[in-house]
Design a protein around this nucleic acid. Sequence first.
DNA 1: ATGGCGGGTTGGACCCGA
Length: 255
Amino acid sequence: MKLATWNVNSLKVRLPQILAWLRMHPVDILCLQETKITDDKFPFAELASAGYEAISAGQRTYNGVAILSRHPLSDIVRNNPLYPDEQQRIIAATISGIRVICAYVPNGQAPGTDKYAYKLEWLSAFHRWIEQECHDHPELAVLGDYNIAPDDRDVHDPAAWTGQALVSPAERSAFERLAELGLKDAWRLFDQPENTYSWWDYRQAAFRRNQGLRIDHILLSESLSARCTACIIDREPRKWERPSDHAPVIAELLL
DNA sequence: ATGGCGGGTTGGACCCGA
């Protein structure tokens, strides 16, 4: 069983790349963020032809999340039931007995801004809900773009990033509090190469210079992390023409 | 110091991302 997450930065633009990537990596479940597409325009038919059932919580212009699955999806939830939010950032479903949550955490812009306050409030409500989900679903996977680099190892230039959003102590603390619920960062279950990131700015040839951040994560409950055999970040699609600025992250589970 | 790229909304410049 393979689960993956990918911030595609526009499903409309990236659909051919998603289909190509799925042919190379026929994962069981793919969580998407920043689809930027309303549900009525969602490419259900193209994905079905590729073997994937899809569910979407979409909106125009910004945000939007979706789950693609080779297996049936049930108990679909859109948004955090504890936090009314007009921005479409969460979709969840049960797939093959695993509770799968796909999340697009707010960016936060910069400490001191309204967007940063929204991010922290959103994360606080997210924690309260995930705590319940952990209780209700021992087999829980929370995948997505967290917009948090948990550790200085996840930042190409920690000194340059000090004090900025994505690395601030309050954001990292929110991430650690999820870990305290028993959720483990699948990436850190294994020895990993240094300087591995999941996002690189489009500007300044950041990808070529590997100036990135690791902000896309797969968190696994205890029972799932015990069965996790690998976690990788696939840099290849970032090299393609007109790429997303994020790379997919994949976790493999014994099932 | 600033903005640098790219997508979306537009039909010209903006907003926004991270």
